[in-house]
């Protein structure tokens, strides 16, 4: 580490002011940011801690949606009775993130702001058609995730909550990277209230994307076999030490079929 200024924000407006004034970075659970600072990949002069802001906390039902405050920890989402009742797939996804320590510190807001290409939450947001609420505006998930580690957020813009419409059915199937246990491929399948099917894939490409071929197949027949039969195009997928693009493409249909099976 190196020396850094630490500021505690009292409200979203306060945090925005501090960020604008100092050019610093928001600190949520620190699970990505602090690690990046230790490696000196990120070197903010000031950290603006969001953990004391009451309005960023909590999980609530608002009509046909589950709204999760940006500073809600993965562990709290995993154990939330409200989430388990409305969208059990979200609780299961949260339970599959990292290890206990990471889940106790890491937040949904931090995860989506970071937009790691292998993070789990982006798949859920895109498949469920969630809305990201910030101090300034509401952004639909499809417009929020831009590219690798890139989002629609402005520098001093703070995520306050994520609103998930409650689906008919949903499930997430994750194939973990054997080393990091982030998603080598993660597929979130959702059948929305209007009957449409959305399939969002994380880990496989530079950013989360919708698998339109699988969506079309599942619209015709919402079965594991239908998902499994789709050959996914490997040409734009990641290839690295842990998986070739072809293997990732294969895993997308395997994990999609497993998610469909888990939808019940």
């Amino acid at each position: 580490m190196y020396e850094v200024e630490y500021q505690q924000a009292r409200s979203v407006a306060d945090a925005a002011t501090l960020l604008a004034k100092t050019g610093g970075k928001a600190l949520a659970g620190g699970q990505s940011l602090i690690a990046a600072m230790k490696l000196r990949l990120a070197q903010p002069g000031t950290l603006v801690d969001l953990s004391g802001i009451a309005e960023l906390q909590g999980i609530r039902r608002e009509g046909d949606a589950i709204v999760i405050g940006a500073m809600t920890r993965h562990a709290d989402i995993a154990s939330s009775a409200e989430v388990k009742r409305a969208v059990p797939a979200l609780a299961a996804l949260a339970e599959g993130i990292g290890d206990r320590q990471v889940r106790n510190m890491g937040t949904i807001g931090g995860s989506i702001a970071n937009n790691d290409p292998a993070a789990d939450w982006p798949a859920a947001l895109v498949a469920l058609g969630a809305t990201v609420v910030t101090g300034k505006r509401r952004i639909v998930a499809g417009d929020f995730f831009k590219g690798m580690y890139e989002t629609a957020l402005a520098d001093d813009e703070i995520i306050t909550a994520v609103s998930f419409p409650v689906p008919k059915k949903a499930a997430y199937a994750k194939f973990p990277n054997p080393a990091s246990r982030f998603a080598l491929v993660g597929v979130f399948v959702a059948q929305l209230p209007d009957g449409s099917v959305r399939v969002a894939v994380t880990g496989a490409a530079p950013a989360v994307f919708r698998a339109s071929g699988i969506e079309a197949a599942l619209a015709r027949s919402f079965t594991a076999e239908a998902a499994r039969a789709v050959a996914v195009d490997a040409s734009r997928l990641n290839a690295d030490l842990h998986a070739s693009a072809a293997y990732r493409a294969h895993l997308v249909s395997v994990m999609a079929s497993r998610a469909v099976a888990a939808c019940g």
Binding site: N177, P178, A179, S180, F182, L241, H242
Partner: peptide, 11 residues
């Protein structure tokens, strides 16, 4: 070294 952290070196 491509496996220089636990992100890539699987223990």
């Amino acid at each position: 070294l491509l496996t220089g952290s636990y992100m890539d070196y699987a223990m």
